[in-house]
């Protein structure tokens, strides 16, 4: 990737936020985008329009991104700037968002890309028309009350009784079985939620599970999935998530509507 990079430090590159049809140019007016070098603008090729911004190439090299990704504040700044532009465009017309850091060496290269991939963009636009993406995350408690010690009364503990070693092994075995049962139940809850939400979604994807640093100490994330849902079924989804939470006892977080980031790459 870097061998095609700019040789000169004053070279420009073109950052592409999204591709859409018939945008209202005023939708992105005033948005900062990812640089102060130039305003966010549009680049049209036949019926497709790319939402672009001219940037300094030296600030958007692979190395620059690597550094940015290691700095949470920088990463957040760019992710939100990207998302702000995508969301503003999507609010006014059908929009295929591109992943953050999609860059071309020139506007001409963007036009080439639009021309070469026009069919796929049209297919993606068709797929997501009148749909939004919704995220569903399911959590279970990480440390349910452990009653393994309550089976023995205080009297039992005062001195080793005959068979104490056997009782200890029984308790250990019981704890193991309970742990396995909890895992099974959590997995079943995740699968049940996923299956039911899929039944009203047009498409679905599993995302990577978030680790304990993100989920929090008291709960374990057992499902991080995202669904492409028709606009007219969004209210149904909210009710379903509520009902599933009550039925499974798991904590269910619904997020959305998102611009369908996760459903434009597979067409």
């Amino acid at each position: 990737m870097t061998e095609r990079g700019p040789e000169r430090s004053d070279a420009n590159a073109t950052y592409v936020f999204a591709v859409c049809r018939n945008p209202d140019p005023s939708a992105v007016a005033g948005l900062p985008g990812v640089t102060d070098k130039a305003p966010v603008s549009t680049l049209s090729l036949e019926t497709l329009t790319a939402i672009v911004q001219t940037v300094r190439a030296c600030e958007f090299t692979n190395e620059a991104w690597q550094a940015r990704l290691c700095d949470q504040r920088q990463l957040e700044r760019y992710a939100r700037a990207h998302h702000d532009v995508v969301a503003a465009v999507a609010a006014c017309c059908p929009t295929v968002p591109l992943p953050m850091a999609t860059l071309y060496q020139s506007e001409e290269r963007v036009r080439d890309a639009l021309a070469n991939e026009a069919d796929r963009f049209h297919a993606a636009l068709k797929r997501i028309a009148h749909h939004a993406e919704w995220g569903v995350k399911v959590y279970v408690p990480s440390c349910p009350p452990d009653d393994s010690n309550r089976s023995t009364t205080p009297a039992d503990r005062s001195r080793p009784a005959p068979g104490a070693g056997l009782a200890y092994l029984d308790r250990k075995r019981g704890a193991q079985e309970r742990r396995e049962r909890r895992q099974d139940e959590a997995l079943q809850a995740a699968e049940a939620v996923d299956a039911e939400v899929r039944s009203l979604a047009t498409a679905s994807r599993r995302l990577r599970l978030h680790g304990p640093q993100l989920a929090g100490e008291r709960r374990v994330q057992v499902l991080n999935a995202t669904y492409l849902v028709a606009e007219h079924r969004a209210a149904e989804l909210t009710l379903l998530a509520q009902a599933l939470g009550e039925r499974t006892g798991a904590q269910i977080e619904l997020s959305g509507p998102w611009v369908p980031y996760s459903f434009v790459g597979e067409v």
Partner: peptide, 21 residues
């Protein structure tokens, strides 16, 4: 992350679905 090719961009998603646990 840095994609100079749209083809790479459109084909790079959903290859890796994690196994639970």
């Amino acid at each position: 992350l840095v994609r100079l090719s749209l083809h790479a961009l459109l084909s790079s998603v959903s290859e890796r679905v994690p196994a639970p646990w």
